[in-house]
Design a binder for these strands. Structure first.
Lengths: 243, 243
DNA sequence: AAGTGGTCTAGACCACGCG
DNA sequence: GCGTGGTCTAGACCACTTC
């Protein structure tokens, strides 16, 4: 039970902040106090506090202390990877998934470029419409390298593909690059979504990599304009501009 | 010159990766090797490598090593805070700023709510259109608490307000919350931007906080649909779902 | 078994804010 | 001067990969 002390500390304090037991604007105990509280070393405490700061729960000021922020419980944290399934569970939405297609096809030029593979290489194409509170709002188009994901089915696609990939296939998904832009609505969007008379659609492109740094999935999530939101938390870097 | 060794290591390696001296897919020296290379301790090296991982330069795998990624130099890194001025400089765009208004006004209900102040509290309202390559594409509407920013002028607004705030007023901007959504075009958008016949516009709302955790600025950046892009780098958290 | 990264410790000194 | 957070050290043990 003494494993990952810093995660324990992180979870304890993020819970307290989310539950309002620690009021925004107030100070956390000092690092030394927390060190004593958990009977651990200061570097371990600092690791936990830095995580809290990274997630927007607290803000640290040298010479003063760590302050509780009021944006720890964010409305829509897409920052980081989070699947549709996790999201809807988190917000208690009434959701449904409509699988339009699960098919192994040769990659067309566009997809081949996105996945960095030769054209006509076989890929799984999965097309799903997401219904939230009675309206079809999101169109997910996934492409998987079929050299890595050998089998797929409508059955799997109607649940969580990620659970299948990580649970059954034991793939280790490690990081992703995400791009948000706006495109014109296509005939397919119109066919599969409740689009009213919108002419544009928000497109979130997601390039997903495995632990061995191979790109194995490309996903295009097409969101109806009026239902799209993205929230981010950013820290300003003083002095050097790192990025 | 031996200050902030971990930043030194971070900068050295991020430079090497950006310049292509370290090829994507190859391995970095082990943490122990780098420790020797810099004559420092392993925790310091790890601090640098974790930063590199956070910025998407490398990917660490337990038992194997740290691998160079090819997405370190991203096209459009708004992740983090970056101003229009920094952006255009970075990409060498031909840009112009048109100041429409710099005025101290009583906050209306909407702005008061955003800034968490009583209605009619005085704020500076700054409205600027950004022209890129000959087209007015972005409309920036800034609101500053006038209790913190006492003076402002068209002169300042036409350059970088942030340089003024940080350089002259010595304000310490520490973090921000960013929200991206899509709204319907307003008459003001039409008046100040080259909107063609778009009916919607991408809105980036930015809540900016000072080091003492006071919210002092609210900015609404309105981007023409076809010119908007946002790129993010995300890591998957195994095991516990932290956020 | 050897090498890798992940966690942790018990100290140390420094930079900063405040009374 | 004291308390705060920021950096750093020289070790230790563990989990994982590879041979």
């Amino acid at each position: 039970m003494n494993k990952n002390i810093y995660l324990q500390i992180f979870n304890d304090y993020s819970d307290k902040i989310q539950k309002g037991q620690l009021v925004p604007g107030t100070k956390l105990p000092s690092e030394n106090d927390i060190t004593v509280e958990y009977g651990t070393s200061r570097e371990t405490v600092r690791k936990a506090l830095n995580l809290l700061a990274q997630y927007g729960y607290i803000h640290k000021v040298r010479g003063k202390g760590s302050y509780v922020l009021d944006i720890g419980r964010m409305d829509f944290p897409i920052t980081g990877l989070i699947s549709f399934k996790q999201m809807s569970k988190k917000f208690g939405w009434d959701t449904k998934t409509h699988v339009d297609e699960v098919k192994r096809v040769p990659a067309n030029a566009e997809v081949a470029r996105q996945l960095h593979i030769p054209a006509n290489e076989p890929v799984w194409r999965v097309t799903r419409a997401r219904e939230i509170e009675g309206e079809r709002i999101i169109l997910d188009k996934d492409y998987f390298l079929s050299s890595i994901v050998e089998q797929l089915s409508e059955e799997i696609a109607s649940h969580s593909i990620y659970e299948y990939l990580e649970g059954v296939l034991q793939l280790k998904i490690s990081y992703a690059k995400k791009e948000i832009s706006v495109e014109e609505v296509t005939a397919e969007d119109r066919r599969l979504l409740d689009l009213h008379d919108f002419n544009h659609i928000v497109v979130v492109k997601n390039y997903v990599f495995l632990e061995n740094t191979t790109l194995f999935q490309f996903t295009e999530s097409r969101h109806r304009l009026d239902k799209f939101q993205f929230v981010d938390f950013a820290r300003r870097v003083h002095g050097e501009d790192l990025p």
